[in-house]
Protein backbone atom coordinates (compact mmCIF):
# COMPACT_ATOMS: atom_id res chain seq x y z
CA UNK A 1 0.00 0.00 0.00
CA UNK A 2 2.66 2.51 1.00
CA UNK A 3 4.65 1.51 -2.01
CA UNK A 4 1.82 1.93 -4.46
CA UNK A 5 1.07 5.39 -3.10
CA UNK A 6 4.72 6.27 -3.50
CA UNK A 7 4.85 5.07 -7.09
CA UNK A 8 1.57 6.77 -7.82
CA UNK A 9 3.00 10.03 -6.53
CA UNK A 10 6.10 9.50 -8.66
CA UNK A 11 4.00 8.96 -11.76
CA UNK A 12 1.96 12.05 -11.04
CA UNK A 13 5.11 14.09 -10.52
CA UNK A 14 6.48 12.77 -13.80
CA UNK A 15 3.32 13.68 -15.67
CA UNK A 16 3.19 17.14 -14.17
CA UNK A 17 6.81 17.90 -15.03
CA UNK A 18 5.91 17.92 -18.73
CA UNK A 19 3.56 20.82 -18.27
CA UNK A 20 6.06 23.49 -17.24
CA UNK A 21 5.02 26.90 -18.45
CA UNK A 22 8.36 28.52 -19.39
CA UNK A 23 9.19 29.16 -23.03
CA UNK A 24 11.46 26.76 -24.85
CA UNK A 25 14.23 29.36 -25.06
CA UNK A 26 14.13 29.91 -21.29
CA UNK A 27 14.09 26.17 -20.73
CA UNK A 28 17.11 25.62 -22.95
CA UNK A 29 19.04 28.46 -21.33
CA UNK A 30 18.19 27.26 -17.83
CA UNK A 31 19.19 23.72 -18.74
CA UNK A 32 22.39 24.87 -20.45
CA UNK A 33 21.85 22.18 -23.08
CA UNK A 34 19.80 21.84 -26.23
CA UNK A 35 17.89 18.57 -26.53
CA UNK A 36 17.97 17.73 -30.20
CA UNK A 37 16.25 14.69 -31.72
CA UNK A 38 18.27 12.93 -34.41
CA UNK A 39 18.17 9.55 -36.15
CA UNK A 40 19.56 6.43 -34.55
CA UNK A 41 22.27 6.52 -37.21
CA UNK A 42 22.29 7.37 -40.91
CA UNK A 43 25.76 7.75 -42.41
CA UNK A 44 26.45 11.35 -43.32
CA UNK A 45 23.27 12.73 -41.77
CA UNK A 46 23.57 11.82 -38.10
CA UNK A 47 25.85 9.18 -36.67
CA UNK A 48 28.28 9.08 -33.74
CA UNK A 49 31.90 8.88 -34.90
CA UNK A 50 34.61 6.60 -33.50
CA UNK A 51 34.90 8.82 -30.41
CA UNK A 52 31.17 8.79 -29.79
CA UNK A 53 30.75 12.39 -30.97
CA UNK A 54 27.70 12.90 -33.14
CA UNK A 55 28.55 14.03 -36.66
CA UNK A 56 26.52 14.70 -39.72
CA UNK A 57 24.46 17.01 -41.83
CA UNK A 58 21.44 17.08 -39.50
CA UNK A 59 23.67 17.16 -36.44
CA UNK A 60 25.25 20.35 -37.78
CA UNK A 61 21.87 22.11 -37.59
CA UNK A 62 21.53 21.15 -33.91
CA UNK A 63 25.04 22.37 -33.22
CA UNK A 64 24.42 25.68 -35.00
CA UNK A 65 21.28 26.30 -32.92
CA UNK A 66 23.16 25.42 -29.72
CA UNK A 67 25.96 27.79 -30.71
CA UNK A 68 23.49 30.59 -31.44
CA UNK A 69 21.52 30.16 -28.21
CA UNK A 70 24.11 28.91 -25.72
CA UNK A 71 27.33 30.04 -27.44
CA UNK A 72 28.58 26.47 -27.22
CA UNK A 73 28.14 24.15 -30.16
CA UNK A 74 28.87 21.13 -27.96
CA UNK A 75 26.06 21.93 -25.49
CA UNK A 76 23.71 19.54 -27.26
CA UNK A 77 22.10 16.44 -25.84
CA UNK A 78 21.49 14.26 -28.90
CA UNK A 79 18.41 12.13 -28.45
CA UNK A 80 18.32 9.26 -30.95
CA UNK A 81 14.76 8.78 -32.15
CA UNK A 82 13.25 6.14 -34.39
CA UNK A 83 10.61 6.75 -37.00
CA UNK A 84 8.11 5.68 -34.36
CA UNK A 85 9.24 7.80 -31.45
CA UNK A 86 10.28 11.03 -33.13
CA UNK A 87 6.95 12.88 -33.14
CA UNK A 88 5.94 11.83 -29.66
CA UNK A 89 9.33 12.91 -28.35
CA UNK A 90 8.93 16.35 -29.88
CA UNK A 91 5.29 16.81 -28.91
CA UNK A 92 5.92 15.78 -25.32
CA UNK A 93 8.78 18.24 -24.86
CA UNK A 94 11.42 15.55 -24.46
CA UNK A 95 13.34 17.27 -27.24
CA UNK A 96 13.40 20.96 -28.16
CA UNK A 97 13.81 20.40 -31.87
CA UNK A 98 13.92 17.51 -34.31
CA UNK A 99 16.52 17.35 -37.07
CA UNK A 100 15.98 13.91 -38.44
CA UNK A 101 15.50 13.50 -42.21
CA UNK A 102 11.86 14.36 -41.65
CA UNK A 103 9.77 15.10 -44.71
CA UNK A 104 7.71 18.26 -44.49
CA UNK A 105 4.16 17.21 -45.25
CA UNK A 106 0.80 18.86 -44.81
CA UNK A 107 -0.50 16.44 -42.20
CA UNK A 108 2.64 16.55 -40.10
CA UNK A 109 2.61 20.33 -40.17
CA UNK A 110 -1.12 20.79 -39.59
CA UNK A 111 -2.57 17.68 -37.99
CA UNK A 112 0.36 16.75 -35.78
CA UNK A 113 0.83 20.42 -34.85
CA UNK A 114 4.47 20.88 -35.69
CA UNK A 115 6.24 23.77 -37.32
CA UNK A 116 8.77 23.03 -40.01
CA UNK A 117 11.38 25.74 -39.87
CA UNK A 118 12.76 25.32 -43.36
CA UNK A 119 14.31 22.77 -45.65
CA UNK A 120 17.92 21.74 -45.26
CA UNK A 121 17.85 18.99 -47.88
CA UNK A 122 15.65 18.57 -50.94
CA UNK A 123 15.33 14.86 -51.51
CA UNK A 124 13.16 12.59 -53.61
CA UNK A 125 12.32 8.92 -53.61
CA UNK A 126 14.26 6.79 -56.06
CA UNK A 127 14.71 3.13 -56.99
CA UNK A 128 17.81 0.98 -57.03
CA UNK A 129 17.94 -2.24 -59.08
CA UNK A 130 20.69 -4.70 -59.95
CA UNK A 131 21.96 -3.88 -63.44
CA UNK A 132 21.60 -7.57 -64.35
CA UNK A 133 17.80 -7.19 -64.36
CA UNK A 134 18.05 -4.94 -67.39
CA UNK A 135 15.42 -2.53 -66.08
CA UNK A 136 15.81 1.05 -67.27
CA UNK A 137 12.64 2.66 -65.98
CA UNK A 138 10.52 2.33 -62.86
CA UNK A 139 7.53 1.77 -65.17
CA UNK A 140 9.04 -1.60 -66.17
CA UNK A 141 8.71 -2.85 -62.61
CA UNK A 142 5.35 -4.62 -63.04
CA UNK A 143 5.21 -7.58 -60.66
CA UNK A 144 8.46 -6.75 -58.94
CA UNK A 145 9.14 -7.38 -55.28
CA UNK A 146 10.06 -4.09 -53.64
CA UNK A 147 11.92 -3.62 -50.35
CA UNK A 148 10.72 -0.54 -48.48
CA UNK A 149 11.63 0.97 -45.16
CA UNK A 150 8.40 0.84 -43.25
CA UNK A 151 6.85 3.85 -41.56
CA UNK A 152 8.24 6.45 -43.89
CA UNK A 153 6.53 8.54 -46.55
CA UNK A 154 8.23 6.29 -49.12
CA UNK A 155 5.66 3.59 -48.43
CA UNK A 156 2.79 5.88 -49.41
CA UNK A 157 4.58 7.30 -52.45
CA UNK A 158 5.29 3.80 -53.65
CA UNK A 159 1.64 2.74 -53.39
CA UNK A 160 0.60 5.92 -55.19
CA UNK A 161 3.17 5.51 -57.95
CA UNK A 162 2.25 1.93 -58.77
CA UNK A 163 -1.46 2.69 -58.55
CA UNK A 164 -1.13 5.71 -60.83
CA UNK A 165 0.76 3.64 -63.41
CA UNK A 166 -1.60 0.67 -63.11
CA UNK A 167 1.14 -1.84 -62.35
CA UNK A 168 1.39 -4.31 -59.53
CA UNK A 169 4.11 -4.98 -57.00
CA UNK A 170 4.77 -6.97 -53.88
CA UNK A 171 5.88 -4.83 -50.94
CA UNK A 172 8.40 -6.21 -48.45
CA UNK A 173 8.31 -3.91 -45.45
CA UNK A 174 11.56 -3.73 -43.49
CA UNK A 175 12.31 -1.85 -40.34
CA UNK A 176 15.80 -0.45 -40.90
CA UNK A 177 17.84 0.57 -43.90
CA UNK A 178 20.59 -1.91 -43.03
CA UNK A 179 18.22 -4.89 -43.10
CA UNK A 180 16.68 -3.69 -46.35
CA UNK A 181 20.12 -3.62 -47.97
CA UNK A 182 20.85 -7.13 -46.69
CA UNK A 183 17.66 -8.50 -48.23
CA UNK A 184 18.19 -6.59 -51.45
CA UNK A 185 21.71 -8.01 -51.82
CA UNK A 186 20.44 -11.53 -51.11
CA UNK A 187 17.91 -11.13 -53.91
CA UNK A 188 14.87 -11.39 -51.64
CA UNK A 189 13.61 -8.29 -53.42
CA UNK A 190 14.20 -7.03 -56.94
CA UNK A 191 14.12 -3.36 -56.11
CA UNK A 192 15.04 -1.23 -53.14
CA UNK A 193 13.36 2.12 -52.79
CA UNK A 194 13.98 4.98 -50.41
CA UNK A 195 15.18 8.57 -50.57
CA UNK A 196 17.70 8.95 -53.39
CA UNK A 197 20.28 10.37 -50.99
CA UNK A 198 20.06 7.29 -48.79
CA UNK A 199 20.23 4.97 -51.82
CA UNK A 200 23.45 6.66 -52.88
CA UNK A 201 24.82 6.49 -49.35
CA UNK A 202 24.07 2.80 -49.01
CA UNK A 203 25.25 1.86 -52.49
CA UNK A 204 28.62 3.38 -51.60
CA UNK A 205 29.05 0.62 -49.01
CA UNK A 206 28.25 -2.27 -51.42
CA UNK A 207 31.01 -4.66 -52.48
CA UNK A 208 30.52 -3.81 -56.14
CA UNK A 209 28.58 -0.55 -56.31
CA UNK A 210 28.79 -0.58 -60.12
CA UNK A 211 26.49 -3.61 -60.36
CA UNK A 212 23.55 -1.55 -59.14
CA UNK A 213 21.81 1.26 -60.92
CA UNK A 214 19.56 4.06 -59.70
CA UNK A 215 16.53 4.39 -61.96
CA UNK A 216 15.93 7.83 -63.47
CA UNK A 217 12.46 8.28 -61.93
CA UNK A 218 12.26 10.33 -58.78
CA UNK A 219 8.69 9.66 -57.69
CA UNK A 220 8.22 12.10 -54.86
CA UNK A 221 9.20 15.37 -53.30
CA UNK A 222 10.91 14.90 -49.97
CA UNK A 223 11.81 18.25 -48.47
CA UNK A 224 13.68 17.35 -45.29
CA UNK A 225 14.04 19.88 -42.57
CA UNK A 226 14.20 20.61 -38.85
CA UNK A 227 10.94 21.06 -36.96
CA UNK A 228 9.67 22.33 -33.62
CA UNK A 229 6.37 22.20 -31.73
CA UNK A 230 3.47 24.49 -32.47
CA UNK A 231 2.80 27.15 -29.90
CA UNK A 232 6.22 28.69 -29.28
CA UNK A 233 6.80 30.90 -32.28
CA UNK A 234 9.82 32.65 -30.79
CA UNK A 235 11.64 29.35 -30.55
CA UNK A 236 10.53 28.42 -34.06
CA UNK A 237 11.98 31.73 -35.28
CA UNK A 238 15.33 30.98 -33.68
CA UNK A 239 15.61 27.58 -35.35
CA UNK A 240 14.34 28.93 -38.68
CA UNK A 241 16.73 31.86 -38.80
CA UNK A 242 19.71 29.84 -37.61
CA UNK A 243 19.22 27.59 -40.63
CA UNK A 244 18.73 30.68 -42.80
CA UNK A 245 21.93 32.18 -41.38
CA UNK A 246 23.90 29.13 -42.53
CA UNK A 247 22.36 29.42 -46.00
CA UNK A 248 22.83 33.17 -46.24
CA UNK A 249 26.42 32.83 -45.06
CA UNK A 250 27.17 30.58 -48.00
CA UNK A 251 25.41 32.94 -50.38
CA UNK A 252 27.44 35.89 -49.09
CA UNK A 253 30.70 33.97 -49.07
CA UNK A 254 31.05 33.89 -45.28
CA UNK A 255 32.94 30.75 -44.28
CA UNK A 256 34.34 29.37 -41.06
CA UNK A 257 37.75 30.52 -42.31
CA UNK A 258 37.06 34.19 -43.01
CA UNK A 259 34.30 34.79 -40.46
CA UNK A 260 36.54 36.42 -37.83
CA UNK A 261 37.94 38.80 -40.40
CA UNK A 262 34.51 39.65 -41.83
CA UNK A 263 32.83 40.15 -38.45
CA UNK A 264 35.09 43.13 -37.78
CA UNK A 265 32.99 44.95 -40.33
CA UNK A 266 32.76 44.96 -44.11
CA UNK A 267 31.40 47.10 -46.88
CA UNK A 268 28.48 44.73 -47.37
CA UNK A 269 25.67 45.81 -45.02
CA UNK A 270 23.95 42.42 -45.20
CA UNK A 271 27.08 40.63 -43.97
CA UNK A 272 27.31 43.22 -41.20
CA UNK A 273 23.70 42.66 -40.21
CA UNK A 274 24.15 38.88 -40.31
CA UNK A 275 27.26 38.89 -38.17
CA UNK A 276 25.96 41.46 -35.72
CA UNK A 277 28.21 44.37 -36.59
CA UNK A 278 25.18 46.40 -37.63
CA UNK A 279 21.52 46.38 -36.70
CA UNK A 280 19.56 44.74 -33.88
CA UNK A 281 18.65 41.38 -35.42
CA UNK A 282 20.01 39.39 -32.47
CA UNK A 283 18.04 41.22 -29.83
CA UNK A 284 14.86 40.87 -31.88
CA UNK A 285 15.29 37.10 -31.48
CA UNK A 286 16.13 37.47 -27.81
CA UNK A 287 19.74 36.47 -28.46
CA UNK A 288 23.10 38.21 -28.44
CA UNK A 289 24.15 40.25 -31.50
CA UNK A 290 26.74 37.70 -32.65
CA UNK A 291 24.33 34.74 -32.55
CA UNK A 292 24.56 34.07 -36.27
CA UNK A 293 28.31 34.46 -36.28
CA UNK A 294 28.54 31.73 -33.66
CA UNK A 295 26.14 29.52 -35.58
CA UNK A 296 28.24 29.76 -38.74
CA UNK A 297 31.53 29.45 -36.84
CA UNK A 298 30.29 26.19 -35.23
CA UNK A 299 30.47 24.11 -38.39
CA UNK A 300 30.81 26.46 -41.29
CA UNK A 301 28.16 27.72 -43.67
CA UNK A 302 25.57 25.53 -45.40
CA UNK A 303 27.92 24.65 -48.25
CA UNK A 304 30.73 23.69 -45.91
CA UNK A 305 28.43 21.50 -43.82
CA UNK A 306 27.18 19.81 -46.98
CA UNK A 307 30.63 19.14 -48.42
CA UNK A 308 32.07 17.89 -45.15
CA UNK A 309 29.27 15.43 -44.36
CA UNK A 310 27.61 14.25 -47.56
CA UNK A 311 29.41 16.03 -50.41
CA UNK A 312 31.19 14.50 -53.35
CA UNK A 313 34.48 14.16 -51.48
CA UNK A 314 32.85 11.94 -48.82
CA UNK A 315 31.94 8.24 -49.20
CA UNK A 316 28.29 9.32 -49.50
CA UNK A 317 29.23 11.31 -52.59
CA UNK A 318 26.09 13.39 -53.16
CA UNK A 319 26.16 16.18 -55.71
CA UNK A 320 24.61 19.50 -54.72
CA UNK A 321 21.91 19.17 -57.41
CA UNK A 322 18.66 20.67 -56.09
CA UNK A 323 20.51 21.63 -52.94
CA UNK A 324 22.72 24.18 -54.63
CA UNK A 325 22.22 27.86 -53.83
CA UNK A 326 19.51 29.56 -55.87
CA UNK A 327 22.26 31.63 -57.46
CA UNK A 328 23.70 28.37 -58.82
CA UNK A 329 20.38 27.04 -60.09
CA UNK A 330 19.39 25.14 -56.96
CA UNK A 331 16.50 25.54 -54.50
CA UNK A 332 18.45 26.60 -51.43
CA UNK A 333 17.20 30.12 -50.78
CA UNK A 334 17.06 32.16 -47.64
CA UNK A 335 14.85 35.20 -47.08
CA UNK A 336 16.95 38.34 -46.60
CA UNK A 337 18.47 39.38 -43.30
CA UNK A 338 17.12 42.82 -42.74
Amino acid sequence: MNKSVFFGALTVAGLMAGAAAATTLEDVKARGKLNCGVTTGVPGFAEPDANGVWQGFDVAVCRAVAAAVLSDSTAVEFVPTTGKTRFTALASGEIDMLARNTTWTFSRDVDLKFEFTGVNYYDGQGFMVPKALGVTSAKDLDGATVCIQTGTTTELNLADFFRANGISYEPVPIETGAEAVQQYIAGACDVYTTDASALAAQRANFEVPGDHALLPEIISKEPLGPLVRHGDNEWGDIVRWTLNALITAEELGVTSVNIEELSAGTNNPEINRLLGAEGELGSMLGLEPEWAKRAVAAGGNYGEVFERNIGEATPIGLARGLNAQWTDGGLIYSPPFR
Binding site: G83, F87, T88, R108, T150, G151, E155, P173, E175
Partner: peptide, 25 residues
Protein backbone atom coordinates in the same frame (compact mmCIF):
# COMPACT_ATOMS: atom_id res chain seq x y z
CA UNK B 1 6.79 -10.24 -37.04
CA UNK B 2 8.03 -6.92 -38.33
CA UNK B 3 11.61 -8.18 -37.89
CA UNK B 4 11.05 -10.26 -41.01
CA UNK B 5 8.55 -7.93 -42.67
CA UNK B 6 5.44 -9.99 -41.90
CA UNK B 7 2.53 -7.57 -41.74
CA UNK B 8 0.79 -8.54 -38.54
CA UNK B 9 -1.24 -6.29 -36.26
CA UNK B 10 1.88 -4.65 -34.85
CA UNK B 11 3.19 -4.08 -38.36
CA UNK B 12 0.03 -2.44 -39.71
CA UNK B 13 -1.78 -0.71 -36.85
CA UNK B 14 1.20 -0.41 -34.51
CA UNK B 15 3.67 0.24 -37.31
CA UNK B 16 2.73 1.94 -40.53
CA UNK B 17 -0.59 3.39 -39.39
CA UNK B 18 0.98 4.71 -36.21
CA UNK B 19 3.85 6.27 -38.11
CA UNK B 20 1.79 7.73 -40.93
CA UNK B 21 -0.86 9.27 -38.73
CA UNK B 22 1.38 10.05 -35.76
CA UNK B 23 -1.44 8.84 -33.48
CA UNK B 24 0.91 6.86 -31.25
CA UNK B 25 -1.10 6.76 -28.04
Amino acid sequence: AIAVGYMDLTGTLGGITLLQTGRAI
